[in-house]
């Protein structure tokens, strides 16, 4: 066992705990703004309860939501980082440890026997996405993804001639169909192009982007704003009880497509957008990127 194994495991454990207990500052700020601006009475009550619950979770170091989600790790791996072959095992160990120590709800169920593994690990879970880059550091991000918001994900294999109009319509229809189910106000990840699987992956990964970070491509940023405005015209409101805050933010990412295919995927995150990142340097030092001031 290499020394970096235990560092990766410790950092992954800390990230899981940070993610399920403390929301990133951008999400909290966005929820506070929504509370200040919401005009529907029932909607405002929901946002107030959400903010009260966030404060209580921090005070008691308890998970914000009882659905602590399934864990998706995004690894940006420097090719020269020592011990890459042991990273997945370290992530599995960290997930298991966090399940008992935080604690988390055991959320890994065998799809055929319905048996719960009891520790959030099993075949294919936690999920690990790799990106290989040059360098000798390792950047880890965890997304704790709840089931209610995952259940309303949509993939549309549009006719390319439907174009941008088709894309916008698919997203608006998905938001309306989802209604109260994904625990609005939500964040939308929209993946465009690639293939069916690539569109869904891009959409989910887009959820990692901070809400206060605008898209670097001006045209895409405009599309994001247009979709956000349309989604908030639906009137679904916080927890579906009516109001003007249905979506907090929209992130679009894309890839080139096949001439005959126009895949568009929409993945929702509930208001409890639980993500945390850290960078492990070659010398073993660790920088926490999303939760800088949090106790560990």
């Amino acid at each position: 066992m290499k020394q970096t194994d235990s560092i990766v495991e410790n950092v992954a454990f800390n990230l899981v705990k940070q993610a399920v207990v403390y929301l990133p500052d951008d999400v909290k700020a966005s929820l506070r703004k929504a509370y200040a601006e919401e005009t529907s009475e029932a909607g405002k009550t929901q946002l107030k309860t959400i903010l009260d619950n966030l404060a209580l979770a921090e005070k008691h170091e308890a998970p914000i939501c009882q659905d602590t989600g399934t864990f998706v790790f995004y690894v940006k791996a420097g090719a020269d980082f020592e011990g890459l072959d042991c990273v997945e095992e370290a992530l599995t160990n960290a997930t298991r440890k966090a399940t008992f120590e935080v604690p988390l709800r055991p959320n890994a169920v065998h799809p055929f026997t319905q048996k719960n593994s009891g520790d959030n690990t099993g075949k294919g879970i936690p999920q690990v996405h790799w990106e290989l880059v040059s360098g000798d550091s390792l950047e880890l991000t965890v997304l704790a993804k709840g089931g209610g918001s995952e259940n309303v994900s949509v993939l549309g294999m549009l006719n390319p001639s439907e174009g941008l109009q088709g894309l916008k319509r698919l997203v608006v229809d998905a938001v309306i169909k989802a209604g109260a189910q994904p625990c609005p106000p939500t964040i939308l990840g929209v993946g465009v192009g690639g293939g069916a699987d690539a569109a869904l992956s891009l959409a989910k990964k887009a959820l990692l982007k901070p809400l206060d970070e605008a898209n670097e491509e001006a045209e895409i940023a405009g599309l994001e704003r247009e979709i956000l405005e349309a989604a908030n015209m639906t009137g679904i409101g916080p927890m579906g009880l009516g109001g003007k805050t249905t979506v907090l933010g929209v992130h679009v990412d894309w890839a080139f497509r096949h001439p005959a295919s126009f895949p568009v995927a929409v993945v929702f995150n509930c208001w409890a957008a639980r993500r945390a990142s850290a960078k492990i340097n070659a010398d073993g030092s660790v920088e926490y990127l999303t939760h800088k001031k949090r106790p560990r």
């Binding site: 009260d52 619950n53 308890a62 009882q66 055991p106 169920v109 719960n116 209610g148 509930c270």
Partner: peptide, 27 residues
């Protein structure tokens, strides 16, 4: 009840009086 407001709910639970059908799993 507000979805996700799980700590607020847990704090209102003063006592777990019992559990049945635990064979179905914790949730």
């Amino acid at each position: 009840f507000t979805g996700g407001a799980a700590v607020l709910a847990a704090k209102a639970i003063k006592h777990v009086k019992g559990v049945e059908w635990l064979d179905l799993g914790m949730p």
